[in-house]
């Protein structure tokens, strides 16, 4: 039986007009998330992770070009009216942001903010909405939810605020939660707790989670599959095992090598030479070619590689990948 895809992003392209020129933020992004799956989206700052998810929710107001498809349960979100999108945001797809300190409104209580969302999407009266708010605060394991519900954000710690944010994210029983670097601003202990809660919610509620991060440790800890982004392309996707053990794209390999080993002392950390490319005048062909150790002149710089498939779950975009011995590459256009 074919597993039903919850979200499919096909050939997504997003450009911005700026005074310096056209910023080609996303060139060809392909992603899919199954029901009840946690997908990690990794990549350096500025590679287009946030633009991708903001496009899914249609929260970009200043993009000059948006093309491709964002299929949510088969329905193209890019074709919906603004009014129809209001029913998707916060109900079907919800978001958790990077900055728990500023993502909640400072002048309303936690309860008021939760209830606003709950009343909007769940059609509940005030009393029932309050009950639901307390219930979801319990689900994210906040101590004493009856008390927290009347607190203002500034009275809570960063970790608690992020739990409130997660509570808001699950309050209307969404099908997909997008978490944009949910643990970056938190210390390591709190980070572990938050990831634990997300994983638990996935198991308990069967919700799918798209987690954006530049921390491969987070990926290893909770994700089922990984998508690696580089400069507006998803250059490799696979299960966590496939990516961590048999990554084929030189960039993915570079990222993995950049994690310092705990067991041995190293003099210098491994880095990928060069910088993230400029998005106004990106390199020709594969955008990674100027930094790539397997660069082939006349091939890599000529045309962007197409999406190729290694296994049912493992895809990549590269002309000269690190293929396992005996594997002949399959081209899937």
């Amino acid at each position: 039986m074919i597993k039903l895809k919850l979200l499919e992003i096909r050939n997504l392209k997003v450009y911005f007009n700026t005074e310096e020129g056209i910023v080609k933020a996303l060139e060809d992004v392909n992603l899919e998330i199954d029901k009840g799956e946690i997908l990690g989206l990794v990549g350096e700052t500025g590679c287009g992770k946030s633009v991708t998810v903001l496009t899914v929710l249609r929260l970009l107001s200043n993009a000059s070009t948006i093309s491709g498809q964002v299929l949510f349960e088969g329905q193209d979100l890019l074709k919906l009216s603004e009014k129809e999108m209001l029913k998707i945001r916060g109900k079907e797809i919800t978001m958790i942001f990077q900055e728990p300190m500023t993502s909640l409104n400072p002048v309303f209580t936690v309860g008021q903010q939760l209830m606003d969302v709950i009343q909007l999407h769940m059609n509940l009266d005030k009393k029932r909405a309050l009950e639901r708010a307390i219930e979801v605060l319990k689900l994210v394991k906040l101590p004493d939810p009856d008390y927290i519900v009347n607190k203002y954000p500034h009275e809570l710690s960063g970790g608690m605020r992020q739990r409130v944010m997660i509570a808001m994210a699950i309050s209307c029983e969404p099908k997909l939660i997008i978490a944009d670097e949910p643990t970056t601003a938190l210390d390591v202990t709190i980070q572990a707790q938050i990831l634990g809660i997300l994983k638990h919610l996935k198991e308990q509620l069967g919700v799918s989670i798209l987690i954006i991060t530049h921390n491969l440790g987070v990926v290893a800890q909770i994700c089922d599959r990984v998508a690696v982004m580089y400069s507006g392309y998803v250059i490799e996707t696979g299960t966590v095992a496939e990516i961590f053990q048999h990554a084929v794209h030189p960039y993915t390999r570079g990222l993995l090598k950049a994690i310092p080993p705990i067991e041995e002392k190293v003099e210098r950390l491994n880095v990928i030479p060069g910088n993230v490319p400029n998005l106004i005048t990106p390199p020709s062909g594969c955008r990674f070619h100027p930094r790539c150790e397997r660069y082939k002149d006349g091939v890599c710089n000529a045309q962007a590689p197409s999406l190729r498939q290694l296994t049912e779950t493992h895809t990549y975009m590269c002309y000269n990948p690190y293929l396992p011995e005996g594997v002949v590459e399959e081209v899937n256009v």
């Binding site: 209001l86 978001m95 409104n105 999407h121």
Partner: peptide
Amino acid sequence: SQDYIRTALAYGIPKRKVIFKYALKN
């Protein structure tokens, strides 16, 4: 331009309410 406005919009709160309730009170 604050993060909490982005949050409100991401949760489907209608723009009018975001402006006159969430932003204006601040």
